[in-house]
Simulated assay, not measured.
Amino acid sequence: MDKLNLTVVARNAALFRLPFYNSLAEKGAQIFIVCTKDHSAIKDLLNPNINLVSARHVLGLCFPSKPVVSHQGNKVVVAFNIELMPWVAYKFGLKNVFLWGIGYGNNRVGNIVRSLIISKSRGLISYMPSGLRLAGERREQSSFLVNSVFVKNPPVESMVDPLSKKLIFIGSLDKRKKVDLLLRAVSILREMGEDYTLEIVGDGEQRNSLEALAQALELKEVVTFHGSVGLHELKMKIFRGALLCIQPGQAGLSVLESFSFGVPVLTYRHAVSGGEIDNIKDGVTGFFYEKLCPIELALTIMGLSQKPHEISRVADNALRYFKLFANGDRMVERFIESVK
């Protein structure tokens, strides 16, 4: 196989992204991960040809502590990070670089800065279609790929049980995910005589306070905190027989992870990340609720549970969507196509 004439520079590496980098490295791409934190835990999980480069911060900007080797005429893709941009401009020249992953946010000034940087670059590879709003004059050279997760063997059929009262949350336990709202909604449902259970997959700064809230709401017997779950097989076991995956606040990649099990997502209509905006079509691949209110969420959950045929139809659509458009292998293919 011909070596892929591609150099990719990223800042740090989340666990879910490692298969993506490894796949590119196997195809011959040069990969540099600029590390601003300890990455010893993932070193053994990376392709040996991937370069980990330590970095230092100066006045809020990030500079690799040793030179990244020449890209040797390769096309260069840089995972967008404001802190890296001065170094990228010096090292490669912005006009020679594709920026990858930049998204449209709620901060108007931030969007103006991002648009300006994109206008000086070679083009934009957005995580989601909505991100292309920032491409401006570079839109023709720009493209998107569905930001996704790698699943080796997605189930043949949806794992949903439309008659179940088992709910799932998956993601980091931080304020923007609003898991406290979900706990209060489950409490309301139980006060209404509806015996829902909740499986929480993930960890974060709010875990202790959320466990305390579950206990205060007398939900200890029906809410399970699994912590971070790395094994796909264990996640499959947790998702099997669920009714819905509930993402009460911002959801992001959790949407596609749930889709990979054929479990539809219920989330807030006005969330801002591409996971919701671009992947969920209400009543087609998932569902929205209208207000950040536990009563509204509880009533929406109860209403959907009374429509088992609709749950089954949307679950099948979600799994089909993941397999056709959002699996990790397809992400690699579109990434390579975007820079050819």
Rank of each mutant, 00 (worst) to 15 (best):
residue 1 M to K: 12
residue 5 N to E: 13
residue 8 V to I: 14
residue 9 V to A: 07
residue 10 A to Q: 06
residue 10 A to L: 09
residue 11 R to G: 01
residue 13 A to D: 00
residue 17 R to V: 11
residue 21 Y to G: 07
residue 23 S to Q: 14
residue 24 L to N: 05
residue 26 E to S: 15
residue 30 Q to G: 10
residue 34 V to A: 02
residue 34 V to D: 03
residue 34 V to L: 05
residue 37 K to D: 14
residue 39 H to D: 15
residue 40 S to W: 09
residue 40 S to N: 02
residue 41 A to L: 03
residue 49 N to H: 10
residue 52 L to V: 12
residue 55 A to W: 05
residue 58 V to R: 15
residue 61 L to M: 12
residue 63 F to V: 12
residue 63 F to R: 02
residue 66 K to I: 12
residue 67 P to S: 08
residue 75 K to T: 15
residue 76 V to A: 00
residue 77 V to W: 04
residue 78 V to H: 00
residue 78 V to L: 01
residue 80 F to G: 08
residue 81 N to I: 00
residue 83 E to N: 07
residue 89 A to V: 00
residue 89 A to H: 15
residue 91 K to P: 01
residue 95 K to P: 07
residue 95 K to T: 01
residue 99 L to C: 10
residue 102 I to E: 14
residue 102 I to K: 12
residue 102 I to L: 15
residue 105 G to A: 05
residue 105 G to R: 06
residue 106 N to V: 12
residue 106 N to H: 12
residue 113 V to W: 06
residue 113 V to A: 10
residue 113 V to K: 11
residue 115 S to K: 11
residue 115 S to Y: 01
residue 116 L to Y: 14
residue 117 I to H: 05
residue 120 K to C: 13
residue 122 R to Y: 08
residue 122 R to D: 03
residue 122 R to Q: 14
residue 124 L to H: 01
residue 125 I to M: 14
residue 125 I to R: 09
residue 126 S to M: 04
residue 135 A to I: 05
residue 136 G to S: 04
residue 137 E to M: 03
residue 138 R to Y: 02
residue 139 R to S: 11
residue 141 Q to Y: 13
residue 143 S to M: 04
residue 148 S to H: 08
residue 148 S to W: 10
residue 156 V to K: 14
residue 163 L to D: 15
residue 164 S to M: 02
residue 173 L to M: 13
residue 175 K to W: 08
residue 181 L to K: 07
residue 181 L to F: 05
residue 183 L to N: 01
residue 185 A to F: 03
residue 185 A to Y: 09
residue 193 G to A: 09
residue 197 T to V: 10
residue 200 I to P: 00
residue 202 G to D: 10
residue 203 D to F: 06
residue 204 G to Q: 00
residue 204 G to D: 08
residue 215 Q to H: 11
residue 216 A to L: 13
residue 218 E to S: 15
residue 221 E to R: 12
residue 221 E to F: 10
residue 224 T to G: 05
residue 228 S to C: 05
residue 229 V to K: 04
residue 229 V to P: 02
residue 232 H to C: 02
residue 232 H to L: 14
residue 238 I to D: 06
residue 239 F to K: 04
residue 240 R to D: 13
residue 244 L to H: 06
residue 245 C to G: 11
residue 251 A to P: 04
residue 257 E to L: 06
residue 258 S to W: 02
residue 259 F to T: 03
residue 262 G to T: 00
residue 264 P to H: 10
residue 270 H to F: 14
residue 272 V to Q: 12
residue 272 V to F: 12
residue 272 V to H: 14
residue 272 V to S: 14
residue 274 G to A: 01
residue 276 E to V: 15
residue 278 D to K: 07
residue 278 D to N: 09
residue 280 I to M: 04
residue 286 G to K: 05
residue 290 E to S: 09
residue 292 L to G: 09
residue 292 L to Y: 10
residue 294 P to T: 03
residue 295 I to M: 07
residue 297 L to Y: 08
residue 304 L to P: 10
residue 310 E to G: 04
residue 312 S to T: 06
residue 313 R to L: 14
residue 314 V to L: 01
residue 317 N to L: 07
residue 322 F to K: 10
residue 323 K to I: 07
residue 326 A to E: 11
residue 331 M to P: 07
residue 331 M to H: 03
residue 332 V to Y: 10
residue 333 E to I: 05
residue 334 R to P: 08
residue 336 I to K: 05
residue 338 S to V: 07
residue 338 S to M: 11
residue 338 S to L: 05
residue 339 V to P: 02
